[in-house]
């Protein structure tokens, strides 16, 4: 008796998981800062997209770029707000998928190298040789601004892997934590997304006596909306265009603040060729 009940229960929960989402268009997004109350904030975005496209749109939160890529590949989500690198990885895995819009700021994104004052480094035109032997932290492993681009410029400048330049290399997992760790001196130097730095500075979370920007990377393209190629077949002809239009016409400051971006502008797969080449150059991507 007890066992039958268990099997029935297990079967029931497998089935129930599939009922509420039939024919729903699902998207995911990981903002580069403030991941609190994701569900509430992005439900509003979902409502907006739903009203604009006529499809039922839902949002599901994920924890990491890797998880977002998995969900996109499994077709659990059909649209995702990816970082530069994760977008390239996702489009490589899902044939026919396409970058359809990027944030205004993402056309010329950049990374700050920040240092604790006690490290005795100062702001310079290039990455200075004085960095050698310091302790250093990236952001999360799959981040474009916190990992890919800083690693690329480190390798270019020093012609060596980060582990060979610094005495220790960590991955804080998050831009806010990178700042906290460099500010506390746990790591001497770090690489951080510039918008997160600017916003934390404005919010008074950064003590300029303790921590400063020592170098800024050249600009590169970053976050973008990527959509699966088979959405027209599933949600009706012209659906992809409708979705692109809805994203580009999103003007509500409240909605845009969730990303946070000023507005969305058109983008294409080709815009991300520099990211793809960079990822190949440092061995994060193979053919």
């Amino acid at each position: 008796m007890k066992k039958t009940f268990k099997f029935a229960a297990a079967a029931g929960l497998l089935l129930s998981a599939f009922s509420a989402f039939a024919d729903t268009f699902v998207f995911t997004a990981i903002p580069d800062e403030d991941e609190s109350r994701l569900q509430q904030r992005f439900n509003k975005v979902a409502d907006y997209l739903s009203a604009q496209t006529g499809a039922e749109v839902k949002y599901i939160p994920v924890k990491s770029y890797a998880a977002a890529i998995t969900a996109f590949r499994n077709d659990q989500v059909q649209l995702a707000w990816f970082g530069g690198l994760s977008g390239v990885q996702a489009r490589k895995l899902v044939a026919g998928s396409e970058a359809i819009a990027q944030g205004y700021e993402d056309q010329f994104f950049k990374t700050y190298f920040i240092a604790n004052k006690s490290a005795g480094l100062s702001a310079e035109e290039t990455l200075s040789a004085a960095l050698k032997g310091k302790t250093f932290t990236f952001g999360s492993k799959g981040s474009t601004s916190g990992r890919l681009m800083p690693e690329f410029y480190l390798r270019e400048q020093f012609n060596a892997a980060p582990e060979d330049i610094f005495s220790r290399v960590g991955f804080s997992g998050d831009h806010s934590r990178t700042i906290a760790q460099v500010q506390s001196g746990a790591y001497q130097v770090g690489a951080v997304n510039y918008t997160v730095w600017d916003n934390e500075l404005a919010a008074g979370n950064i003590d300029p006596e303790k921590i400063q920007v020592i170098w800024t990377t050249p600009t590169y393209p970053d976050y973008q909306w990527t959509i699966r190629g088979d959405v027209d077949a599933r949600f009706g002809k012209g659906f992809k265009e409708k979705m692109r239009k809805a994203l580009l016409e999103m003007k509500d400051k409240d909605l845009l603040a969730s990303f946070p971006r000023e507005s969305f502008v058109p983008a294409s797969n080709d815009d991300y060729a520099p990211i793809e080449n960079t990822a190949r150059a440092i061995g994060l991507l193979e053919d």
Binding site: L13, S16, A17, F18, S19, A20, F21, A22, T24, V26, K58, I60, N74, D75, Q76, V77, Q78, R234
Partner: peptide, 10 residues
Amino acid sequence: LPQSPPLGSS
């Protein structure tokens, strides 16, 4: 138990 979107193409 949470409901989650189905896998379109596993």
